[in-house]
Write a protein that binds this DNA or RNA. Structure first.
Lengths: 202, 202
DNA sequence: AAGGGCACTGTTCTTTTCGACAGTATCCAT
DNA sequence: ATGGATACTGTCGAAAAGAACAGTGCCCTT
């Protein structure tokens, strides 16, 4: 859809977004140059032309502050994949598992999730995580004790609260009908950390 | 908070909002004058000064297109207000209660919510609704038995599962530590229906 | 080694835009 | 009846802003 930006172009785009959010208007070439530390406002012009060419902004000719952020730039990569049933052995984000994708705005969760996971079963119901809920997961291979994590033991993926002992790890369910699972720390693969939840009522 | 606008001032404000949404930038005095049909751009200037005085916009001096819409004027499409502590007796969407607003994409919930409500207390914890969660609520003054509703008895607003009997209504908590509340159907005001939930992990 | 994209500096010219000033007319409250 | 708020028309000068042009240097691919 939109071309990839260079590092500098990304900085310029972020700078415009910031200015827009602070003042409600787009920066002029001169303001942009000053914010980015350019000596010449033509440097800003060049970047703007690049951003327009790549589809991130629209420039209104001969209009002051005529920089219009397009969707691609305004809500960057806000579509997250929803992972459903996890095929044994495959990495959790394998394309085959993508159920659909859901737009998740920047800032909806304090920690930006990497993907969404459809919860199966009620082993975490006392933590308010019910069957069918979508949980927002930040991909990570480490976690602290006490965090709710998406973890894999052998080829089994589950959502549980992590408790770390010395050399061992325990996955605690939040439901009296289930029992904790303790394994050696080396047998456990952390897939990600629970950062939020979305539930759609019937 | 903000003064009442005259009819013409409201039209000008709407006009600016429209222009902003179409082009991503605020109109100049001249553009505003043309859109409103003024012969003189000073008419636009006068209106802008009035809008600033009344707290709807902020004018950035000597900056082109320096019209910044303030919160009072801007309730953007995707953004839903988050209602916090509900002041007794006031309608639930009273401006005073707005904590902040959160972008909620179209289609995130099957039923489009009207506002979000910050949950206080754990009376619905067995339904997976925890203290601090944001629930998505569709404003409605009617509900079916079995739905989770936001309801008011006198000046108390709570979230409970609704059970309707003949002539009476029962609000069922989802927590053994709380008891059901049964009242006459006429004493109960339904504020809205639970349509979804958003949780932000620490 | 040659060309192209990227990332700038520096300058000039023209248009856009703001802001200030000088008026007019209507309505409303004191 | 008088003053103030509202709602405009019309003009002007100065500052702000965009656009175009002429360069430089770096890196990467061919």
């Amino acid at each position: 859809m939109s071309d990839k930006l260079t590092f500098r172009q990304q900085q310029v785009l972020d700078c415009i977004r910031q200015f827009l959010s602070d003042t409600g208007m787009a920066p002029t070439r001169a303001e942009l140059a000053e914010l980015m530390g350019f000596q010449s406002k033509n440097a800003a012009s060049d970047h703007l032309r690049a951003l327009e060419r790549k589809g991130y902004v629209r420039l209104h000719n001969d209009r002051s502050r005529g920089i219009q952020m397009l969707d691609a730039a305004l809500w960057p990569e806000d579509e997250l994949p929803v992972v459903g049933k996890v095929a044994a052995g495959l990495p959790i984000e394998a394309i085959e598992n993508v159920e659909r994708s859901v737009p998740v705005p920047q800032g909806m969760f304090r920690q930006r999730p990497t993907y969404l996971l459809r919860v199966q079963g009620d082993s975490m119901k006392d933590a308010g995580i019910l069957d069918g809920d979508l949980i927002a997961v930040r991909k990570s291979n480490m976690a602290r004790s006490g965090q709710i994590v998406v973890a894999r033991i052998d080829d089994d993926v589950t959502v549980k609260t992590l408790k770390l002992g010395n050399g061992s790890a325990t996955l605690m369910p939040a439901n009296d009908d289930y029992s904790p699972i303790t394994v050696g720390a080396d047998q456990l693969v952390i897939e990600g950390i629970f950062v939020g939840l979305i539930r759609d009522a019937v």
